[in-house]
Write a protein that binds this DNA or RNA. Sequence first.
DNA 1: GTAATAGTGGTACGATTGTTTTACATTCTA
DNA 2: TAGAATGTAAAACAATCGTACCACTATTAC
Lengths: 196, 196
Amino acid sequence: MSMKGEGNRQCIIKAADELFYRCGYNQTSFQDISDATGIPRGNFYYYFKTKDDILDAVVQARCNDFIEILAQFDASTTDPRERLLLLADMLRANEQNVLESGCPVGSLSAELAKDSADLQDKSRRVFGILRSWATEQFSALGLTQEADELAMDLLARMQGIIVMACAFKDAGFLQRSLTELKDWIRQVVGTMSQAG
Amino acid sequence: MSMKGEGNRQCIIKAADELFYRCGYNQTSFQDISDATGIPRGNFYYYFKTKDDILDAVVQARCNDFIEILAQFDASTTDPRERLLLLADMLRANEQNVLESGCPVGSLSAELAKDSADLQDKSRRVFGILRSWATEQFSALGLTQEADELAMDLLARMQGIIVMACAFKDAGFLQRSLTELKDWIRQVVGTMSQAG
DNA sequence: GTAATAGTGGTACGATTGTTTTACATTCTA
DNA sequence: TAGAATGTAAAACAATCGTACCACTATTAC
């Protein structure tokens, strides 16, 4: 597949990514993607074997996006504590989207949990990237023993905040919870790294 | 609508409730409900005007279920702290379901956030019942000022735990997080009620 | 310039969706 | 027991779903 075709492929992935986030995977039809891209829906099978294949590509794209974002966090400061705070701050940067549609990672995983186990396995990869990155940060702070558990705790807190903020469309709760979350990060890192 | 018809109506609601939880609202078809109940799918329109109407009835049923459950909590102990711990313990009682399909309240709300705002409004009512009940418990502990915020925090923590446990199918994380959650409840209630 | 490849536009498929309708059976009421 | 109300079974509705296919035009390689 050459330049021209690859461009269309990326166009499909980009449109599908947005639609999967806004409408859900199952609720997004080929017609929707066709309308968004201008590419006839019959042509999708030139680029992808099946709808699941588009999901694969979208998941891969999201993985790459996060890898890049996390690399920027890594580049912007050497302090793992600051890096974790940057991750938390994504809640503020994406406030509007979060209130409207929840977390692209969490909501996709939750949706696919109700489809085949096979599909959820794929979506889990995005969470895996965040989890291992956060684990690295906690480890770098001397919390090697409990690093993975802390990473899971951090992600769980973020997911919970998003679910409730989205359910009640409550920007105030989102802001307040973000503050508390950042306090928690500072506290966990501060106290436990002294103890460890 | 008399006895016979009402029985079928409840049968449809019960089957739809289970299917909405296991497969999601959008992914559950009339055919699925028909297969589960033995009632021809054309007949649903004798009991409900539309699919959304079935959702309404399911949400109402879930509300009633929770009202009953919370009433049992209220009856089993007069200590609001104990009551809150009972709520948290629902994560353990429903461990298997949670790992497989997430939270019936949270996952429905998250799914409907991607459909019309109208549908999500309906699903929010179930969260509202939990929220106001938890608020009452915190208030009864003398935390009137921050009761609603604490209720939201509690629900957010539970939702986050569920999302991550379900995403990674991790029973260990669920158990560990439940312990930490109960510690948090005891701590918040303990320290702040002394301070207040 | 010709042949092979890459990509496009559009049609059509069988299946399934939520919904409507129709004909029939049952149950209740007078 | 007649007739109205209530409930049941099944067929058919138009629309849409994911998928497949085909005739066609660009592009590229020799």
